[in-house]
């Protein structure tokens, strides 16, 4: 505020001084505008650079065998089929497990806990989990499900990913339910419906597009998670759909292949990186378009 007053209330009877002041204000405005344009341009260039790099390196490595062959030793023309299937299974199960829990928590926060102390604690903890380092979730599940049950397993990976998707669904469910006008709730209760029916048949239905958006964003988030899977489902170079054994996944395969000294493995890693990034970005755009409708 102070600058505003300085600018308008100087001893500026002198026209030349006033003009100079105006010029310097205009100049600093222009400089900051240009810097702001520059910052936005840098952000867009970075996104473009990532996409161009992925297409340049991944597209060349993309061929049919990437989708039809399982991972093989270097030099034997392997693919990523088992990694992709493993990722689909783990992400799918984690979503199926995590979504209802997240929806219930979000419903609790929006419909039952308005202003209550317990509700505020749950909201706080859920927000902490939303941004907490995912590697720690991996360590937690390792301690909880891998050590006591004698080894890495697909289920442990599912559990880790489910823990990560829950707070995402909680956040959007609560936000979307909070947008529903109270008059709608009063109308349903006024008709004599019990509260749970009001929530399930009216509130959830009214908020469904927002909740779907949240789930899609959550799926996009866990599809690319690598760190928590290092300690849970570990990865597997063979075809495996056994959830009690170590399970392959796309991010882990990319991680181990990208760090390998073999050229064909590095190329496969780029192909996998392109697949996973496209999937995640398409999910994001899809989620936004669901919400806009």
């Amino acid at each position: 505020m102070s600058t505003t007053f300085q600018a308008s209330s100087g001893p500026t009877k002198d026209a030349a001084v006033a003009a100079a002041l105006g010029r310097s204000r205009k100049r600093s405005d222009l400089i900051l505008r240009v810097l702001s344009y520059g910052a936005t341009a840098i952000g867009l260039v970075l996104l473009a650079s990532i996409l161009v790099t992925l297409f340049a390196k991944g597209f060349g490595a993309m061929n049919l065998s990437v989708f039809t062959e399982v991972t093989r030793p270097p030099g034997s023309n392997g693919g990523l089929l088992n990694a992709m299937v493993g990722s689909l299974i783990q992400v799918g199960l984690a979503t199926i497990i995590g979504t209802p829990i997240g929806m219930l928590v979000g419903t609790y926060l929006a419909e039952y806990a308005r202003g209550s102390a317990f509700g505020n604690v749950v909201r706080f903890v859920s927000d902490i989990l939303l941004s907490a380092p995912s590697i720690l979730v991996g360590l937690f599940v390792y301690q909880l499900l891998v050590l006591p049950f004698g080894g890495f397993s697909g289920w442990a990976g599912v559990a880790a990913l489910a823990i990560i998707i829950i707070p995402v669904v909680v956040r959007t469910t609560e936000d979307m339910l909070a947008l529903i006008p109270n008059t709608l709730r009063e109308a349903v209760i006024g008709l004599g419906a019990p509260k749970w029916k009001m929530i399930v048949t009216v509130c959830w239905r009214a908020a469904i597009s927002g909740i779907i958006t949240g789930v899609l964003l959550g799926v996009a988030r866990i599809a690319g998670e690598t760190a928590p899977l290092l300690f849970t489902s570990l990865g597997n170079n063979a075809w495996s759909t056994d959830l009690t054994a170590p399970m392959p996944s796309l991010p882990i395969t990319i991680y181990s292949y990208a760090g390998s000294p073999f050229q064909d493995w590095i190329e496969l890693a780029w192909a996998g990186a392109l697949i996973i990034t496209l999937a995640v970005l398409i999910l994001n755009i899809l989620a936004r378009s669901v919400l806009r409708k």
């Binding site: 936005t40 952000g43 867009l44 970075l46 996104l47 650079s49 990532i50 790099t53 992925l54 996009a220 988030r221 599809a223 690319g224 998670e225 690598t226 760190a227 991010p251 990319i254 991680y255 990208a258 890693a269 780029w270 990186a273 996973i276 990034t277 995640v280 970005l281 994001n284 755009i285």
Partner: peptide, 16 residues
């Protein structure tokens, strides 16, 4: 576009 930058998985940033 800026929000999509946040959606790119960590491992992709690592390779890039």
């Amino acid at each position: 576009a800026v929000e999509l930058l946040a959606a790119v998985p960590s491992i992709i940033y690592g390779m890039w």
